[in-house]
Design a protein around this nucleic acid. Sequence first.
DNA 1: GTCAATAAGATTGTTGACAATCTGACAAGA
DNA 2: TCTTGTCAGATTGTCAACAATCTTATTGAC
Lengths: 242, 242
Amino acid sequence: MGHPVRLPRATPAAAPPAPRATGALMLSLPEQIAAQLASRITAGSYAPGQRVMEQALAAEFGVSRGPVRDALRLLEKDGLVTILARRGAQVTKLSIPEVREIFDIRVALNGLRDRGIAEEPERLKLLPMLEAEVAELARLAKNARHSNEYVECVFRLNRALTAASRSARLRAILDALAQQTLRYSRLGLASELRRRQSVRHWQELVKAVREGDGERAQRAAEARVRASRDEAIKKLRELAEG
Amino acid sequence: MGHPVRLPRATPAAAPPAPRATGALMLSLPEQIAAQLASRITAGSYAPGQRVMEQALAAEFGVSRGPVRDALRLLEKDGLVTILARRGAQVTKLSIPEVREIFDIRVALNGLRDRGIAEEPERLKLLPMLEAEVAELARLAKNARHSNEYVECVFRLNRALTAASRSARLRAILDALAQQTLRYSRLGLASELRRRQSVRHWQELVKAVREGDGERAQRAAEARVRASRDEAIKKLRELAEG
DNA sequence: GTCAATAAGATTGTTGACAATCTGACAAGA
DNA sequence: TCTTGTCAGATTGTCAACAATCTTATTGAC
């Protein structure tokens, strides 16, 4: 069979070996599988600690174990699964200190990212989008029923900013970390008070970007992620105790 | 054949399938191959941009392409090779802006690392080693002929500090970045003036760790890596022009 | 002489099967 | 009752071969 092709889902027997056309934006087979699994993990379909077995996935996706292996290595790179030698892969399970560690790294690197963006001459192209999204954030924060939409909007913003970063390595690291903390960020934005604080942080960041003030952008970004970190940890502790 | 075993080098035909005992600290076959290749890359045996082909390595190590594939994925995770779909792996080639980006990330994360260490109660156990190594640095810096030893000592120090960090993720990221910038750090420590400056940074860091002053440790670490960055970039530019 | 199409070789992607190891349960002994 | 040893099933590690793609050199046309 070829390989950078669409995924036949849940093919019980052998898939028809029809070679497909080579499209424009194509993910390799392992990448497609990894993407599917990543969304299942971040969405919570797979529980933390759950084993992820090659054979079963290969059968489900109608491929052999090779591409599944590659996909699992890809997910390991993003920290979504943990691979133990001779013991296979399992959905990464994070302790509270580990969550904190990841947020701490994000504090430092989001600061670096947003400082870089604020000092970039092309930052002005980003501003309309930033301002529109932050206005949307302010709107959503007022209504307690829009918690999910608020979180989605924050993720869009973050993804856009990460994508705008010059450094490919920074992008890769931040994308991985953001994915790992996705479910916890959600926890940390549950209360309306927190969302209002979050809006202020974003507004401060946009202002700094508009004025090209890298240091202030960095401070705002760091403050924002720190607040997210503290609230997430607090909620996690409450969940662990109560 | 088994798999977490020693490497038969350059076996032309099939290796004798003798099953070996399961030792205590054992690397899987792909990890062993990856370690070998990593040292070749960081030592400069493989030139940047050079293609690294599965078949050839499999033949050289006397294994099939499977473990070699895994090894290359491992190296990609550390940024030592770049894998292009359908085009194989090549030793990562860094442009000057890319080198700068990596150093910038190291600035932020080394700061985070050393701040964490300075604020750790168990930091006192580290102090003797730190002080001994930094004294050694001061000794080596005085003699221009000891440039290589100086660099080695800096790497030991860095490795020890990274290993002492609480966060496994921070360790993984920093190890990867340090490997990627290894040859450039070497460039940046060539001049005696720079080594003297480097010693002062290290002394400042040790002092901050001794006193448990996290913020000062962070500033010292950041300053140290920034200086390393600037000197490496300067040398790279000189090489590119002259 | 330069450029595009073509064909041969080289290289990666994928597969299915076999070997080695791990997991869990069950039984025997202290 | 708890530990230890053994066994069967399940799962990962490895291999060799095939298929698809890419690269390179050659040919032909303009």
